[in-house]
Nucleic acid binder design. Sequence first.
DNA 1: ATCAAGTCTGGAACTTGTTCTAGATTAGCG
DNA 2: CGCTAATCTAGAACAAGTTCCAGACTTGAT
Lengths: 220, 220
Amino acid sequence: MPAEAKVSAKVNKVAKVEARAAAPASPPLTERQEARRRRILHASAQLASRGGFDAVQMREVAESSQVALGTLYRYFPSKIHLLVATMQDQLEHMHGTLRKKPPQGETAAERVAETLMRAFRALQREPHLADAMVRALTFADRSVSPEVDQVSRQTTAIILDAMGQENPTPQQLSAVRVIEHTWHSALITWLSGRASIAQVKIDIETVCRLIDLTAPDTRK
Amino acid sequence: MPAEAKVSAKVNKVAKVEARAAAPASPPLTERQEARRRRILHASAQLASRGGFDAVQMREVAESSQVALGTLYRYFPSKIHLLVATMQDQLEHMHGTLRKKPPQGETAAERVAETLMRAFRALQREPHLADAMVRALTFADRSVSPEVDQVSRQTTAIILDAMGQENPTPQQLSAVRVIEHTWHSALITWLSGRASIAQVKIDIETVCRLIDLTAPDTRK
DNA sequence: ATCAAGTCTGGAACTTGTTCTAGATTAGCG
DNA sequence: CGCTAATCTAGAACAAGTTCCAGACTTGAT
C-alpha cells in the first residue's frame, strides 16, 4: 500500500494526546488513524442512538468500527472518554447548524433561550444519544476533565454567540455559567423522566432572565 | 431470641417498597431489619468517605455491614439506589442541622445563598462522600426516579426554609428549581476539579439573585 | 532493502456490579 | 409447640468495563 503515512512524528501517543483537545494541539494522525477514529465515533453515536448509555458497549463499538478492543482503548481510554468525545463531535455539528440560523429574539435572554430550546429539540430527536452523552458528561471524573472542559467551552461559545455580545461583562459570564449549569441539570431531569419537556422549557426561560438582569445596556 | 419481630405485615417486600420512600409509606421493618439497614447505610457512608464513588464496592459494603451480598441487594437494588439512599440520610441530618441556625441574611436571596454555602462547606469536609453521593444522584436512571425525586424534594424544602416564604409564587418556585439545577451542576464541576470553591460560591450567589428578582414584595 | 519502534489484532484474564441457587434461620400463626 | 412463608447466608455464576499479552503489520529512518 502506497499512501498511508502522511503526518510523521516523534510524538505519537495517539490516545492521551489526541483525546485531550479535539482538533487544536498535537494530532499527528495518519489517514488510516483518522479514519479509525471516525469509525469509532460513528459506531459510538450509532449504538448510543439505540439503547443509550448502556447500549454503548466497548466490545460492540470495537466490533462495529472494525478495530480491536485494545485499539479502541488506545484511542479512547475509557467509555466515558469515548462518549464525551462523541459529544464534542455532536456539539460541533450543532454549533455549525445553529450558526446558520441565528435566533430572532429581541433581547439577549430571548435569543439564548431560543437557541437552547432549538438544541433541546435536536436532542429530543435522538433521546437515547442524548442520554448517553449527558450521562457520560456528568459522570466523568477528574481523568476526563480536559475533555469535559472542552465541551463546556464549546457550549459557552454557543451561548455567547446567541447573546450576540462581543464583550460580555463578568456578571454576564457568571450568568452564562449558571445557564450552563441549569442546562445540564435540566437535561438530566428530563432524561431520567423526572421533568417534562415543558418543565425544561420553563427552567431555561427562567434562568435566561439572568442575562437581561446583568446586561450593561438593558439595565443600569 | 425473644423480641425480634415487632411490626407484622403481609406486605413484606423490603427493598422495593422500603426504598421507594424513606420514612412515609410501608416500612414494616423488624428491629433487626432496621438495624441491618442502618448498618448498610453506615458502611456505605464510611466507605464513600474514603475513596468516593469507586470505593463503595458492593461486596465491601456487604462485608462491612455483616450482611450477605444478596441481602444487600434486597435492601438496595443497586449501587446507585444505595448511594442515593445514603444521600437521603445525610440530607436529613443536614436539614436538621441547618434548621437550628437559620441564616441571617437580609434578603431571601442572601439567606438561600448563605444556606447553600453552609451546606457546601459541610460537603467540603467529606469531599469523597460528596463525590459518591452526587455522582450517584446525577447518574441515576429512571429506575431510581422516586428516590432521586425524594432527594430533590428535601433540597427544595431546605431552600424554601431558607427563603422563609410560606407561600412562594410560581415564579419563585421556578427560581428554586433553577437554583437546585445550579447547585447540583456546580457541585459536579467542583468535584471533578473543573471549578474552584470560589467559583462555586460565585455561581451560587449569581443564581440566587433570581429569587429577589421574582420576590413578590421586593419588586412589583 | 532492512531494521527498530510503534501500532494493531485476537483473545485471555481480571474487576466489580448484578443475578441466581440451595440450604439455614426467622417470623407470624394456629 | 410446630408449620409455612419469608428472609438471610455463602458462594457460584454471569456481564461489561478494563487490562494484558504474544504475535503480525506499519511506519520512518538508515
